[in-house]
Write a protein that binds this DNA or RNA. Structure first.
Ligand code: ZN
Ligand code: ZN
Ligand code: ZN
Ligand code: ZN
Lengths: 154, 154
DNA sequence: TTATGGGGTGTGATATTGTAACGTTGTTGG
DNA sequence: CCAACAACGTTACAATATCACACCCCATAA
């Protein structure tokens, strides 16, 4: 499920990275936003908004849907997480600021999700948009199927 | 909005094509399924399920959400339409059976949507999935931005 | 012929996902 | 301090999607 070695470290690395970036960019990384980001990374996979809400309510019983969605909006807008449109779920970005165009491999079996941000894909997409005289603002590329680990187990 | 010359013909072409394919593949292209496909093509753009339901209720007052979703499932499963995950909407496929991998350019202004199924993109994606030892079953590629027509009008 | 089974549909209820609106609180810069 | 604005609390609601169960139709087999 999680392919990291030490997941506690994996989480805290992500939080600290966000903390640093928010400081640099003068963004308000409030406790609430930090908590949602932590919950997303704790899952280390696509997390559903209402699952996050349930978890948040453990420490913040008065939390409401809007509480979660507003934090998610902030985190998405600033590149700390991505929305996975095909799953209606949210996943932490492993390299915020590097680039906007993140592509995903989603395993239908183990639900693991990994980024596969190949520049060759970006180039191919750019060539196509150019050819169509289309000015691209946002790209959603989500590939579902079976990961290597799960294929082995069959 | 619609870039076709004669939209009535555009619609009927799509319906007849589906009719033919269903006959060949022994699929049951019922009146209901045909009507939903027609409604989707009449919009000639991404159509929302509940808008389709409202339209369907004009001729079929007792239609319910499940009525629409079941027809959509059939149409998707057999390649006649695609779900646009980033919009929660459904769009007719302009070339059913040709290939499964359809990519979309979605204009945020005029809401027009066009398929841009470039083999170079497919190749780039395949190279990446192969490199990640990932067995891809389904690809969602949706590019939002501004189309040529809308850019001109600024 | 009747029995049987499966696919498609009708129908009501419910689950899941996401927003709008408005007031309050807190921070920040003048 | 005060004004402005962002963040948050809270309520209500909208939008999207699925489940469960009954019923009908039709093809096939007994
Ligand atoms: Zn990313
Ligand atoms: Zn897997
Ligand atoms: Zn298509
Ligand atoms: Zn346009």
């Amino acid at each position: 499920m999680t392919q990291c070695e030490d997941h506690e470290e994996c989480i805290s690395t992500a939080i600290e990275r966000a903390d640093r970036i928010c400081f640099q960019k003068q963004l308000k990384f409030t406790d609430l936003r930090k908590e949602i980001l932590r919950l997303i990374w704790e899952g280390h996979g696509p997390q559903k908004a209402y699952d996050l809400l349930n978890k948040l309510q453990k420490t913040n019983p008065s939390a409401k849907p809007a509480t979660v969605y507003r934090a998610l909006d902030f985190l998405i807008k600033n590149g700390f997480i991505h929305k996975v449109a095909s799953l209606n779920a949210f996943v932490g970005c492993s390299h915020p600021l590097k680039h906007k165009e993140c592509y995903f491999l989603i395993c239908d079996d183990c639900k693991n999700i990994s980024e596969c941000c190949d520049p060759n894909i970006t180039a191919a997409i750019q060539a196509t948009t150019a050819q169509n005289e289309f000015s691209a603002k946002n790209t959603t590329l989500e590939i579902s199927g079976h990961c290597n680990e799960c294929l082995k187990q069959i």
